[in-house]
Each structure stands twice: as C-alpha cells, then as structure tokens.
C-alpha cells in the first residue's frame, strides 16, 4: 500500500512537471502569436493591445498557474486561431485519436505477444529465419512511407477503403473502424516488430536462468518449459514497454493522420504548433503526456502486483 501511495505522489509531481515543461517550451519557441493573428498591417499599439487582451503581458509563472488552475477546473481556454473555446476545437477529435491509438495498441499487443513466442518456438525453422530479418526491415520503414505504401496497396489497388474519405463515427461505426484499420496498421506494424523482438530477447534471456534448467531436468520439453515457466516472467519487461509504447503510438499518429487525412488530434497539434495557437497545442500536449504518465503508473503498479520482487527504489 505504501508503494501505491508513494507512486501516486510521484505521479502527481510528474504531471505538474509535464505541464510546466510544456508551458515553458511554448514560451521559448520563436514566433509571436500576435503577429500571426494581426497580419501584415498593424501598429505596435494594436499588437500591445492584443497582447494585453490575451494576457500575454504578464509574468510567465503567473500565467502558468492561472492556466493550470483553469485547466484543472476543465477550462482549457480559448483558441487563438479559431476564437472558440479549446474544448470545442477538440470536440470529436479526441475520440478519433483515442480510437486510432487504442486500435493500434490492441493490434500491437495481440499480434506481438504470440509472434514473439512463436519466434522463439520456431527459432530454427523457416518461420523464424524469415521473420527475424523481416522484423528488422519493417522496423526500419518510416511511418509516413509505410502509410503511403498501405494507401497504394489497400486503397488504390485493392480498394478496401477510399483514401482521403474518412467516415465519421456517427455516420457509420463499422465504416469508421474499417477506415481507421489502415492507419492503425501503419502505426502498429513497426511497433509489432519491435515488441516481438523484445519479447523474443526477453524469453531467450530468461531461458538462461537457473529455474529453467531445473524445469528441463524434470524432463519437460523446451516448448513446455517456455509455455509454463518462462513466458510469464519474460512478459514483465514487455508489459512496461507496452505501456510506454503508447507515447510512441500517439507520436506516430501525428504523422499517420496527415497521410490518411484522419481528423484527429495529431493534425491539429502540428497545425496549432505552427500557428502558435498555444492554448490548443498546450491542451493537447498535456493531455497526451498525462495519458502516458498514467499508463506508466499503472504499469508500475501492475508489475509490482504480479511480481513483488520488482521494487526498484
């Protein structure tokens, strides 16, 4: 229990730091939001007036805490670029990115674990020999390029979906999911390759432990040892990795949403950074980072529950 309490405290501290970093990061980027808003003809007085009305003339830390408390109350501020509440700008987009990320994540988990085990089981068979280097190749394809290849193959040649025509959730749930499957594939393929490799390495490492030798000495076959003893232990580091890979997945979605024209947070994020629309960018960044931090927290608690030995200071 003490462990959980301590971890929760750490979680809150991390979340605070995350928000502060995000806030400061946007403070130091060159490019003033007021010039983006005012356009080519304006006087310094008008810029100053706008800065004041946006509250940009106040001290950074005053603004940070103002923003933080408002954010905690659920008030994310007003978008500079769209002059509407950030909440409204994000409406609908959070769900899209969440579904896309979740789909990719489920794909990663459900494919990579059996694949990783199979890679060990059939290590010396043709399967293992083909999959290992293939894994390396897939890991080396940049996401945007994989996205383009998938669009060509599944969209233009096989016509399984219409690239560029995203189907909103409210129009057709199945249509939406089918469309999202392809960007999810583009995101998850490299991750599957990575995770399967990691699991394979973890299992192979675990196989050198003493208890495995004991299990062998009891007359178990290699596969039985793996199945009954090794996998459980070998999965531990992979669980942590899978929790953390959510951050990667969201990062990939920034690119993939662009390639597949998916109206999610990723495109909005890139656009709001380049338009210096900080209220929007900040809200998205802090939300994404919070999800990641919370996932890590859950993974820590989970790992600890499964295996109390893991109690790293």
């Amino acid at each position: 229990m003490h462990y959980v309490l301590k971890k929760t405290g750490v979680l809150l501290a991390t979340l605070l730091l995350v928000s502060l970093f995000a806030f400061l990061a946007f403070e130091i980027i060159p490019g003033d939001p007021t010039t983006m808003l005012l356009g080519s003809d304006y006087t310094p007085e008008r810029a100053e007036a706008l800065r004041q009305s946006l509250g940009l003339d106040r001290n950074v830390f005053v603004r940070f805490f103002d923003w933080l408390f408002a954010f905690l109350r659920g008030d994310m501020g007003t978008s500079y670029s769209y002059s509407m509440p950030v909440r409204e700008v994000l409406r609908g987009k959070i769900a899209v990115t969440a579904v896309l990320s979740l789909m990719s994540w489920v794909l990663v988990v459900s494919v990579s674990v059996p694949l990783g085990i199979a890679l060990v089981r059939y290590q010396n068979k043709a399967f293992g020999r083909i999959c290992n280097p293939l894994n390396q190749v897939i890991m080396a394809i940049p996401t945007f390029f994989l996205g383009i290849l998938l669009t060509y193959v599944f969209g233009l040649v096989l016509k399984l979906f219409t690239p560029g025509r995203f189907i909103p959730f409210r129009e057709s749930v199945s249509g939406c999911l089918v469309y999202l499957l392809f960007p999810a594939l583009a995101i998850s393929l490299p991750k599957i390759a990575k995770t399967a490799r990691l699991l394979r390495a973890s299992i192979l490492g675990e196989m050198k432990q003493d208890y495995v030798l004991t299990a062998y000495s009891h007359g178990n076959s290699r596969w039985l040892v793996i199945k009954n003893h090794v996998v459980r232990n070998a999965l531990l580091p992979v669980v942590t990795y899978l929790a953390m890979s959510l951050a990667d997945i969201v990062a990939s979605s920034i690119i993939v949403e662009q390639v597949f024209v998916v109206p999610g947070l990723g495109r909005l994020l890139v656009a709001s950074i380049s338009n210096r629309d900080y209220p929007v960018a900040l809200s998205i960044v802090v939300m994404i980072a919070s999800v990641v931090v919370v996932m890590n927290y859950l993974a820590d608690i989970l790992t600890q529950a499964v295996d109390p030995r893991v109690r790293l200071s």
């Binding site: 383009i148 060509y152 233009l156 690239p163 560029g164 025509r165 662009q258 024209v261 495109r267």
Partner: peptide, 19 residues
C-alpha cells in the same frame, strides 16, 4: 472544402475519388 496539407495525400485523394 477538405483540408489536406500534404501534397501526396491530396494526389491520392483525387485518385481515390475522395475529393
């Protein structure tokens, strides 16, 4: 009016008939 910032994606959306 559909916002498609990436040129190659625009080309593919035309080919697919999405726009």
């Amino acid at each position: 009016l559909k916002v498609i910032p990436d040129g190659q994606t625009m080309v593919m959306s035309l080919r697919s008939g999405a726009i």
